[in-house]
Amino acid sequence: MNGSNNKIALFAGLSSFLAVFENFIPIPVPFLRIGISNIPVSLGFVLFNFKELLFIVLFKTIFSHLFRGTLFSYVFLIALSGNLLFIFITFPFYQIFKKRISFISLGLIGAISHNLGQIFASLIFLPAKSALLIGYFIISIGLIFGFANGYICNIVYRKFFTRALYGQVV
């Protein structure tokens, strides 16, 4: 294992806490999420392998929906699909381009894959095709939030991670 169990638990807990916490942040459109819970997951790309990241993402999804009371509903299935597509697309992307990208690219690709997964799942699980109507809007806003999250990840990575990982500020 690349990361210790303590680190995995810390990142899974932090991500789950932020997933629940972001429900309390008022957003004008009810179905939108800022996606701050993905900040620890994105930072985890530099620390963990695929299995460990998958565990963090699954833990976050299950815990946050358990807390919201939507664990056994189609909302959970939609969120799970988004998270799984996120990890299955973003991880190979990171592995291929990790020497050329910062967290901004990771945030953008993560936001797109996350939203696409949710839209596909909505088309499968919901009888109405309303996801197609708001799909363009969701992806557009998702890109803005993905960029912002990536920018925050860059700051956190620069201030806390690089010194801890490499002993200097890169």
Binding site: R100, I101, S102, N154, R158
Partner: peptide
């Protein structure tokens, strides 16, 4: 992983 925005990001 770079800690600043790269040309690829832009």
């Amino acid at each position: 992983m770079k800690s600043n925005a790269t040309l690829f990001d832009l």
